[in-house]
């Protein structure tokens, strides 16, 4: 009976375990850094192709080796010295002239919907020709509009490729 009572009175020393647990807790609290909420745009970027003597009027390549595939819609983004958009060309014409604000982007979206929404659209990818100084933030606004377009089969446009416009004043 006495032996049983002694067994019942056994008490673990929890203080040491608590110390260790607090140390672990301190470590995790100090190293805890919540990841920022980031989104992304998924793109399938085709391999680079040599592009030479491309005129803005060449919305669609004729298949003679000029570098574009026959189903590329060409967007041309020009920028000022601060890296802001000054105009966006769409094929042979212009989508808008001015900054990439909500109104102009909506206009670009409307034009692209008109091109990609038709049943037998010849395009399934976009080639964006970009001024070298354009800021990434500005470029993303245009990419965002392009990535929102849906092809006639219902899939989103994901094939987007880039090429750099020659520096202003550079020899062609």
């Amino acid at each position: 009976m006495r032996r049983r009572r002694r067994l019942g009175e056994v008490e673990l020393n929890l203080a040491a375990m608590l110390d260790m647990a607090f140390q672990l807790l301190t470590f995790f609290i100090l190293t805890f850094r919540p990841a920022p909420i980031e989104g992304q745009l998924s793109l399938n970027l085709p391999p680079p192709v040599p592009i030479t003597n491309v005129q803005p009027e060449q919305a669609v390549d004729s298949g003679n080796g000029g570098g574009f595939s026959t189903n590329s819609l060409v967007l041309t983004i020009r920028a000022n010295g601060d890296g802001d958009v000054t105009s966006v060309g769409l094929g042979p014409g212009r989508a808008f002239v001015g900054p990439a604000n909500a109104y102009n982007l909506h206009e670009l979206d409307r034009l692209l919907r008109g091109l990609f929404g038709i049943q037998h659209t010849p395009y399934d990818q976009v080639l964006i020709r970009v001024a070298p100084d354009l800021r990434y933030e500005e470029l993303m606004k245009i990419i965002d509009v392009c990535a929102r377009q849906k092809l006639p089969d219902g899939t989103r446009l994901q094939k987007i490729s880039f090429s750099e416009l020659p520096e202003p004043g550079a020899k062609q």
Partner: peptide, 12 residues
């Protein structure tokens, strides 16, 4: 070939 361009979903 497969790329993902990261962006914030809202201003922080």
């Amino acid at each position: 070939r497969r790329f993902s361009l990261k962006a914030m979903t809202k201003v922080e």
